[in-house]
Amino acid sequence: MQLIRVLFALCIVIGTAHAEAPYPSKPIVLVAAFAPGGVTDISARLVAKGLSEELGQPVVVENRAGAGGAIGATFVAKAAPDGYTLLLGTVSELTVLPVVKITPPYDTMKDFEPIARVGTVAFVLAAHPSVSANNVAELIALAKAEPGKLSFSSFGVGSQNQLLAELFMSKSGTKLLHVPYKGSAAAVTDLIGGAVQLTFDTTTVVMPLVQGGKLKALAVLSPSRSDAAPGVPTLAESGVALETVGWTGVVGPRGMPPAVVARLNAAINKVLADPSIKTEFGRRDITVGQTTPEQFRDFMQADIERWSQVVKASGIRIE
């Protein structure tokens, strides 16, 4: 990969020596702030593949994983705002991390230029089969009968799904024990084993396990019922006014020329409208849609406000 990039770079130097060409005149780097193989990486690769064809320039995915996505995001925030370095960001590094960190590495609304949201995925409240509650109301009753007895696993301290659980607890007036893990796989492993009783994870992870009888799904957290989780009620239906989604979107460094943002937004939306790309995302339960940069900005703003409130109320902060 590196070699290819060096070769590309050489080509650019030779190619652009003559004239200033319209954007994009050289390859674009799309940074994914997580390791290869994960949902972020795969989303980035799907978007990059479509964008390459759409823009007529190679779009290269670069994984810069580490520090919960902060390393990749910081890299993009500091890059030149010329539209050649972009981030396929997620809720983790764009709207959760800057809120929970005592010293945030960047301010998402000030340091990034929203371009387009890519996809959203529904979260599920899942329980170990041994938990006697079969719906959210029973779960709340159970949790209230013995406060702190039920435990939930999270992806780590200050992760989106810990904040989700905090929000759930404050809205339902319950107290659950938080057990942090390193990422989703470990968190779900101990849920299957029954060491913890609850977790919040995406339909992609939870539903196959529900179908296999290893877990039970109590509610989805999306605004409406999810096709990926047939028959599972929303949390709002169950009486807890809480809705949120996991999402990915493309952002660039702050200060990109409006024309470049518009060009990228149009291109990404066109890619996402492609039925084959839609199916690819659909396999991972990701719903893709069309957004303007302004809509995406408002969406992120609302997300940040929600998490800020949770952080303020719960006092969850990380260094």
């Binding site: 795969i42 196959p208 179908q211 296999g212 396999r283």
Partner: peptide, 10 residues
């Protein structure tokens, strides 16, 4: 998953 095979208990 890329290949459309859903890993899971089944």
């Amino acid at each position: 998953i890329i290949k459309g095979v859903q890993p899971g208990p089944n």
